[in-house]
Amino acid sequence: MDIRRRNNVRITGAAQGPVVMLAHGFGCDQNMWRLVEPALAEHHRVVTFDYVGSGGSDLSAWTEERYSSLHGYARDVVEVCEELDLRDAVFVGHSVSAMVGVLAAEAAPGRIGAMAMVAPSPCYVDEEGYRGGFTREDIGELLDSLESNYLGWSSAMAPVIMGNPERPELGQELTNSFCATDPDIARVFARTTFLSDSREDLARVKVPTLVMECSEDVIAPREVGAYVHGAIPGSRLVTLDATGHCPQLSAPEATARALLDFLRNLQ
């Protein structure tokens, strides 16, 4: 199994610099990091990848069983770390990837030396004594949205979904491609993302951790950011002046600044 090809691993930046691994969340792929990557790459070795089932990953490696649990995604992270023989890498996880990072750091001690969580949420669904922001019915609505965008998307995305190795330029020309994925795979990822409960995992985080929340985020509201910060011993909380769930796109400078500040303090 060629892990680099399977997870579409890309390595940029300073070859001898400390390693920063950027992990995308549900929805799109490693292109999410395009706007913050240059700032990080100046002094760091930047590793980006796609989870199996997303972006340019090898869809044939996807199985519903493995990717119906966050542990399956964590195995992707661990396997990429092992493939590149990373030690003490700084794992930057967006959204659900923050919780994937928690599992990966626990599964492979020594590979991940610190974590930055971008707009994390350990549990999206409201539970007794906890407000995640959504009900189970809300998550069902999201699944319907995925479904109803299926017709329009699948025709435009078909060459990407089918894979078109002999004509790679097709994939480049298509718009929307970096958020495109097989609808069956997207449904499994959505369900896994939004119905997981990782709250108990947070107390076991042993590496230095930065929690980055956005000032206005309908997916991970500020009280969730405060919860994550409170649950991870010794973590730091930064509130980015950013609207939406993707500060690395809506406020790339502020996001990069906060990350670089965290990275500097680690050394």
Binding site: G25, F26, G27, C28, M32, S95, F134, D138, I139, G140, E141, L142, L143, D144, S145, L146, N149, F178, C179, F194, D217, V218, I219, G244, H245, C246, L249, S250
Partner: peptide, 12 residues
């Protein structure tokens, strides 16, 4: 559902 879809797909 539209909000979630907007934030994870549309806005990016």
């Amino acid at each position: 559902g539209g909000k979630l879809y907007h934030e994870t797909h549309f806005a990016p």
